[in-house]
Each structure stands twice: as structure tokens, then as C-alpha cells.
């Protein structure tokens, strides 16, 4: 029973953490129509920033400022946001599929920096010993994780409520107007490029926050933590949940992360140890299948778009 409970807590922490990134992506794609294929890169920026700001000092590696946890989270959001502004200024005027290719390239480049810039990132060894605030507050992994879960739930709720208010504000309506018809939106006196950049930046800083929460929980960040497959997973979460809807974003994160961890668990029980190396491949095949099948059979996802948004979403 304790085992199940502790596993459930562990699962929810990670699913909600990814859910925050999915909400960020939802703001970009579901509401503004920006195709960000570099999610992994922004998670990495957030994760490393958090590790640098809050982690212990180490020889020959930058950072280790041992700042409070909350500073790490905010710093991660700022850093991801700054990178997003730079990236956005260069790429946001591109057509959809070029934006996808360019942002994909950014994630690859950030990954290269993570591997190679040892002074900043610890290279392939990564940065270890990132403090988890729950360790100070309680004893025993179950309680500690429960506290961390409460923290993640709080952050998720904050992000959810904040985003709901934002997308229903006048600014949020401009987002949808831009997604539907950029020319018409600009004729209303809105500057679409600026609003797109704002939405992109806000979405990316949520991804940075997600990366920071992940690293804060795991206590470690390495170059293999934010591989391109994370981008695919986050996208699958958004599509499965239904883009254009923040509840769908969280639901999608739960479902897809459930399938991922559940299948990983099942495979580890069934498959012989010498085949374990390939079990990750089987999990990835499953994610690919879910994405493709959802698009074919339930293109609007589990929860469709909020009705306040016009019908254009599915034929984008």
C-alpha cells in the first residue's frame, strides 16, 4: 500500500511537472499557433539555470551559488524567457514549418552546449547535489516526496489559474485573433509580431519552470536529461489532451506520462534483462503510436478546445 502510494506521488510529481511545460506549449500552439519543436531546449535552459543558481559550489565549474529554491525557479523562468526572446526575434517571423525546423535546431544546439560547455554545465558528468527543499522539511522519502508534490501542485495551480486569466484577458483574445487571421489582427491596431513574441516568451518560461522543478526533484541535471524525445513527449501530451484547452494539457500529461512509465514498468517485468536496452525503444514506439492514432482517430484530443475559442483550431 505504501509502495503504491509512494509510487503514485512520484508519478504525479513528474506528470504535473511536465504538465506545466505542456501548458506553456499550449499557450504557444493551442492559443497562438506557434510551432515550437524545441521544447527540450527550453526545459534544459530552465533545469541548468536552476542547478547553477541553487546547487553547491564546485571546482572548475561556474555557479553553485546555493541560492534559495524559489530563486532557482524564478531564475529558470527568466533565463528560458531571455533565450526565448533572442530565439523569437530571429525565428518568429518564419512560416509555421520553418519555425518548427528552426526551433528544433535550437534544441539540438542547446543540447550541444550542455554536453560541451563543461565550465557551465559540468559536461557529460552534469551537475549533482542540487538541493531539494523537501529534504530539509521532512524525514523519509515518502513525506519528502509528498511535500514536493504539494509544491508542484501549488505551482501547477498557479500556472493554470494565471494562464486561464491571461487567455481570457483582452491580450488572450488578441492571441486567438492572430492565430485565426494575422492580417485582420494587425488591422485592428495590434502588432502581431510583438504579441507572438510575448506569447512565445511566456510559454518558454513555463518550460523553463518545468525544467527547474524536474531538476529540483531529481537533484541532478545531465546532458542526457533533455533529449529531443522530450519534445516529442510534450507534444504528444498536448495533442492527446487537446490543444487550446489548459485542462486538456494537464490531462494529456497524466495520460502520456502514465503510458510511458506504465509501459516501462511492464516491459521491465516481462522482458529478459539482456533486452532491457531495447525496452526504451518499445516505449518510444508506443508514444509514436499514441500520437499518430490520436491524430487519426481523435484529432481534437480528449478534451476539445474551449468553446470560447472559434472553430478554426482543428483546420490549422
Amino acid at each position: 500500500m505504501i509502495g503504491v502510494l509512494s509510487y503514485l506521488i512520484f508519478f504525479l510529481i513528474l506528470a504535473l511537472t511536465f504538465g506545466i511545460a505542456v501548458m506553456g506549449l499550449n499557450l504557444q500552439w493551442g492559443f497562438t499557433g506557434l510551432f515550437n519543436a524545441g521544447v527540450a531546449g527550453f526545459l534544459a535552459v530552465g533545469g541548468y539555470t536552476h542547478a547553477i543558481l541553487t546547487g553547491p559550489a564546485r571546482d572548475a565549474v561556474f555557479g553553485g551559488f546555493e541560492l534559495p529554491f524559489i530563486v532557482g525557479l524564478l531564475g529558470a523562468m527568466v533565463a528560458a524567457g531571455v533565450v526565448a526572446i533572442i530565439v523569437g526575434l530571429v525565428t518568429l517571423r518564419l512560416r509555421d514549418e520553418y519555425l518548427a525546423v528552426a526551433t528544433f535546431g535550437i534544441a539540438v544546439s542547446i543540447q550541444l552546449v550542455a554536453v560541451n560547455w563543461e565550465y557551465m554545465t559540468g559536461g557529460t558528468l552534469g551537475l549533482i547535489g542540487i538541493p531539494n527543499p523537501s529534504k530539509v522539511l521532512a524525514d523519509g522519502p515518502l513525506r519528502q516526496n509528498a511535500i514536493y508534490l504539494a509544491l508542484v501542485v501549488g505551482v501547477t495551480l498557479l500556472a493554470y489559474i494565471g494562464l486561464q486569466r491571461i487567455v481570457q484577458s483582452p491580450w488572450g483574445r488578441v492571441l486567438k485573433a492572430i492565430r485565426e487571421d494575422e492580417v485582420a489582427a494587425s488591422s485592428l491596431g495590434k502588432n502581431p509580431t510583438r504579441v507572438r513574441l510575448e506569447a512565445f516568451t511566456l510559454g518558454c518560461s513555463l518550460m523553463g519552470l518545468s525544467g527547474a522543478l524536474y531538476v529540483g526533484f531529481i537533484g541532478f541535471v545531465g546532458a542526457t536529461d533533455f533529449l529531443p524525445i522530450i519534445t516529442f513527449q510534450i507534444w504528444t501530451m498536448l495533442i492527446v489532451g487537446g490543444s487550446g484547452n489548459m485542462k486538456g494539457a494537464i490531462l494529456g500529461a497524466m495520460i502520456v506520462w502514465g503510458v510511458w512509465t506504465g509501459s516501462g514498468f511492464a516491459i521491465s517485468k516481462v522482458v529478459a534483462p539482456e533486452w532491457q536496452a531495447q525496452s526504451g525503444a518499445l516505449q518510444a514506439v508506443l508514444i509514436g503510436l499514441i500520437l499518430v492514432l490520436t491524430l487519426l482517430m481523435r484529432p481534437k484530443g480528449m478534451i476539445g478546445e474551449d468553446v470560447t475559442v472559434s472553430r478554426h483550431a482543428t483546420d490549422l
Binding site: D96, A100, F232, I287, L295
Partner: peptide, 15 residues
């Protein structure tokens, strides 16, 4: 659907 759905699908197919 539109061409961006095809891009998502190509993500899945690539995986």
C-alpha cells in the same frame, strides 16, 4: 486537416 497536423504526425512516425 492542415499541414501542421501532418508535421505532428511526422514526429510520431519518426519515433
Amino acid at each position: 486537416t492542415g499541414h501542421m497536423t501532418m508535421v505532428f504526425a511526422s514526429f510520431g512516425v519518426a519515433l
